[in-house]
Computed example of a mutant assay.
Amino acid sequence: MNEKIRIKDIAEKSGVSVGTVDRVLHNRPNVSKAAREKVESVLKNINYQPNMYASALAYNKSYVFYCIIPKHESEAYWEEIEEGAQRACEARRDFHVDVKMMYYRRFDSDTFVKKCKECLNANPNGVIVVPSELEITKKFTDKLHERNIPFILLDSYMPDLKPLSFYGQDSFCSGYFAAKMLMLIASGEKEIMLMKQTKNGKVASKQQENREVGFRHYMQDHFPKVKILELDLPLDGDKERYDEILEEFFVSHPHIHHCITLCSKGHIVGEFLLKTNRRDIQIMGYDMVERNAKCLRLGSISFLIAQHGFMQGYNCVDTLFKAIVLKKKVDPVNYMPIELLSKENIDFYRRTQL
């Protein structure tokens, strides 16, 4: 199509007024069926493609997206997500897009509910949320649906909530893959250790639960005789307490040489192994945060599975931008790659690469 075609030209070809063409282009009411069919026929014949970028810039509106995520330490997986979200805002600064972060405490549904209420009171244009328990999160997302506020689920996929989109790994496949990679180096072992961080018997997310399901499926299918010894490091513990628990465990289980954790805290075990000079033991974990990377380079972590938190944060904001500002259709489910890092390739991994 000729890019210089005007609404006036479309009106002339259709035999209708300029105002009618404008209402059809913007899907507004008060257009007769016959007139709409005439305009749509012309648009189809000339392969009309609206310049949504130009329209959005001309509108000169500001957009605020809220991102509700767990409170976290510096250099954690969630910090990567924040960095990605902010970078997406910078990339769309001409459109006056901003993202505001809100934090709730894991295992504390009251703080999640409180932040959700604050978010609703702010009436944002779109929301990114790392869900809490299904029923609690549903009360929030139902209100978002009532107000026609699009939202994206991050990290844990709950299709019953009917989000605009989802970003995260296929957690079952991720756990299955983790077991497969671990057993490439631990196939001769009779026991392996599974480190978990829990509170009141629960791990931090549905994603970790599903990873463990995938992990155990692989082990049952391929290594049913290998004993999986669980070690719980309480979520609210400190380094001194962790060291005591780990020392007791490894003294009691001298035949353990390989461990795995399905969260981003592999460095807790990795740093302990380095400090106590246990060079014959390794742990496999998740997420390319700096403390994990250091242990990987020094050999106490065997592999890391990366899920590109930066790109998840970036894509969540960019997807809201495309759907809300540019009125484009977006993919409802977006699984992130399952990337395996070792000390040989970690220095080539770019967590902030676009």
Rank of each mutant, 00 (worst) to 15 (best):
L161K: 00
P224V: 09
P70V: 10
A11F: 11
S252C: 12
D22Q: 12
S41D: 15
K343D: 12
C316P: 06
M1W: 15
L153R: 05
E339A: 13
K143G: 02
I10A: 05
C116W: 05
V325H: 04
Y104W: 09
W78L: 07
P131K: 04
H308F: 10
E191N: 07
K100R: 15
D331P: 03
M181I: 08
D243M: 13
T276R: 12
S165M: 07
N345I: 08
H255K: 15
I268H: 03
N277V: 14
C119S: 02
K71W: 07
V269L: 04
F172A: 01
E79Y: 15
N45D: 15
Y104D: 01
A122L: 11
I46L: 13
R216M: 03
S302H: 10
F112D: 02
V113R: 04
L262M: 13
A293I: 10
M1D: 15
F172L: 08
S14G: 13
G201F: 01
D238M: 11
N345P: 07
D98K: 13
E73W: 14
N292Q: 14
V97D: 05
I185L: 02
K138C: 06
L134Q: 12
N45A: 15
T261F: 07
H222N: 11
T352I: 14
K100M: 10
E133P: 03
D287S: 12
V21S: 03
F166W: 01
I256P: 01
I128G: 04
S62A: 13
F112A: 06
D318H: 09
E80W: 05
V203L: 02
F112H: 05
D280L: 11
E247G: 08
L233R: 00
K38Y: 07
S264D: 06
E230P: 08
N334Y: 03
R211C: 04
M288R: 07
V97S: 04
G285A: 15
K275P: 07
